[in-house]
Design a protein around this nucleic acid. Sequence first.
RNA 1: GCGCCUGUAGCUCAAUCGGAUAGAGCAUCGGCCUUCUAAGCCGACGGUUGCUGGUUCGAUUCCAGUCAGGCGCGCCA
Length: 587
Amino acid sequence: MKDALSELLLRALESLRRAEAVDVATPDFVIERTRSREHGDFACNAALVLAPTLRQKPRDIAGEIVGALPESPLVHRVEVAGPGFINFFLTDRAWQDEIRRVLHEGANYGHCQIGRGRPVGVEFVSANPTGPLHVGHARNAVIGDTLARLHAATGWQVYREYYYNDAGAQINNLALSVQARIKGIEPEDPRWPADGYRGEYIRDIARDYASGAAVEAGHPHGDYNREHTRELARDDVGGAAPGTTGDRLPGKQDPDDLDAIRDFAVAWLRREQDEDLRTFGVEFDSYFLESSLYREGQVERVVERIAQQGHSYEDDGALWLRSTDFGDDKDRVMRKSDGAYTYFVPDVAYHLSKWERGYKRAMTVLGADHHGSLTRVRAGLQALEIGIPKDWPEYVLYQMVTVMKGGEEVKISKRAGSYVTLRDLIGMAGLDATRYFMVARKSDSQLVFDIDLARSQTNDNPVYYIQYAHARVCSVQRQMHERSLVFEQHEALKHLDRLDSAPARNVMVGISRFPEIVAAAAGNFEPHLLAQYLRELAGAFHVWYNAEQFLVDDEALRNARVALAYATRQVLANGLGMLGVSAPASM
RNA sequence: GCGCCUGUAGCUCAAUCGGAUAGAGCAUCGGCCUUCUAAGCCGACGGUUGCUGGUUCGAUUCCAGUCAGGCGCGCCA
């Protein structure tokens, strides 16, 4: 709809330019929905934007533009208002056409081709396989998955990827912790490893290892990026290649075989994370293991390349990245004096891999507590001097989640082992509510997840409000069936002019916003716009539902109303689908 | 000390890359079920957008400063 108006304006400006009334380049105007009906349905600020360069009064310019606008069946009238806005009042026909479009396009309504099939890599969750997923990962998972769905809906070829930090000190720490448990050492024991993981799950892993139980850590689901899958197939963790059914990795029972313990523990935790994510409706196209970067020499390669480009230096026996050349506030160690690499070097190698795999657009969903690594990774990528843009990859930072229960904050601490897991959260709040809450607000504000509130499944919970609207339409459909009323869509669409009430009109206007919302939510990495919008559309529907009876005797009127109800249901279903929230037929 | 994020109604949050009269829900108070699901609807109450300046036709939005909260600043990951 916006596009149609934009087209009209561009034609008006073009004809003015030919008449030499406006001799500047097309201004960077915006067309937006008005807040108030008095100002029409859409407003455009083109005249206000042009005024300074043309050195004319905005209202005069607006008048000229309006005079040059071509006729359109969508536009009822146009007026100049306020300081120089051009306000469009649309015809009833315009809204009715949109309803026809919804019913015609069905599940595709709201989709667009902005992405033009280009590949985009969405990396999210990427939790260390050292413990169960917690509420922070839940927010990450929902934001990432929703962004992935939104990008798919806007015409991008989406690849979901999970990066496993399965190498380094923390994994060693995991192995030592499990080993201690195998040997019956408790965290209070002086022999317990320093900074060992104290969580109960360590005990579970130890028990399974000692009993010789097998663990499968494959990922037998999803559509795989074949080239990448082949690369990962050389992986040695658990012997499992993503995309295969996964190999069974039995515990060796030997308490002194630290390598075996490490592999078993990582596979065990990956399996658990996979299960949780699958339950959560989140799946990945590929899993990338940090260990593969070391094994294939990619980390070395990055360091050498940076050195070749003259962006590193040695000091105190360590190798440093001159990251201050690229906007960091201090230089960073790449290789410690003991020869080990610091964590961000494999991160750079990993992102280099993404670049080489052709992700001209890549986004990483990252908790705000890791935002420091962002500058370092980008600096490292710049230091490679291979033409990677400064702002690549794009990061979606989300602020911390605090969990409230019984009026008290539940501390999240992986080391202490006392934190609310994703599994707990879903168990308490339910899948739909958890997913909805996690994207219902901007990712850059902190989120307080009140477990008591979330589990009280009442009208406090906006997800029910939305689902209820969907279920109500389904109920109307059932009623029609019971009363042997027939809905003929083709016939109904001829009578949409009967939808002349204010509540019905608000529903139509609300529906027509959906494509704009989807495009904005995807383009700005703001999935909360969609969550918010669905609440508003459901609200408009409930108002209309209460204001007018749908199943009336007048057949033409009845069909018109049912058509609008079905269109509403379609948009709610499409939107909920993008959030990964179910759209129940009855409640 | 430096960097990033946040500050909007009693509470939880919106506000479409600077737009016109800042909107919802919850809470409080008052109404609506012989009609398609009352998990709903209608009405009332509720604001100096933390504070002070600046930029301009216009600022919750941008800039500077300031106050408050969160996160991060390691040869940890």
